[in-house]
């Protein structure tokens, strides 16, 4: 069965989608990612879709699902590198992917994830301050 490779980099998981997605492949990615987040207790997921030419409502839903599921598992998801034509099409389709973080490229996505993680840790630190 076809699979999209998921790379583990420290606290983060990195997925680069290089092939044309079809529904089964996308569904597999969803379950694989959720399992990986759980296994490595990852803090962030970076999905690079710069090579993806079409995102339709099904793929859009999968991306939204991944973001929501990882949120429940305490990980942030950032989708990076969306092509302009894909972005315009998604908006016209009526799918603004609210709830999914986005960034221009992998580098900026990494920075965004680190900022989010930093924010999380400061919030936790603040909490402990209050308790003591």
């Amino acid at each position: 069965m076809d699979k999209i490779p998921i790379l583990k980099m420290g606290d983060y998981l990195l997925v680069t989608i290089q092939v044309d997605l079809y529904d089964r492949l996308a569904l597999n990615l969803e379950s694989d990612l959720v399992n990986m987040i759980n296994k490595h207790s990852s803090k962030g997921v970076l999905i690079d879709i710069s090579a993806v030419n079409i995102v339709d409502s099904f793929m859009g839903r999968i991306l939204g699902n991944i973001a929501q599921m990882s949120k429940i598992l305490d990980a942030h998801t950032v989708v990076v590198g969306m092509q302009p034509a894909v972005a315009i099409t998604l908006i016209e389709l009526g799918l603004p992917l609210s709830g999914v973080h986005t960034a221009l490229n992998v580098e900026k996505g990494m920075t965004l994830l680190q900022e989010k993680l930093f924010l999380d840790s400061t919030v936790i630190a603040d909490d402990t301050d209050d308790n003591t």
């Binding site: 529904d23 030419n53 079409i54 339709d56 099904f58 302009p84 034509a85 099409t89 016209e92 389709l93």
Partner: peptide, 17 residues
């Protein structure tokens, strides 16, 4: 054009599903 092509392919993808 690229944008129109992407729109067409996306619409086609929806309908074929």
């Amino acid at each position: 054009g690229l944008v129109n092509k992407t729109k067409l392919l996306t619409a086609a993808s929806e309908l074929v599903r």
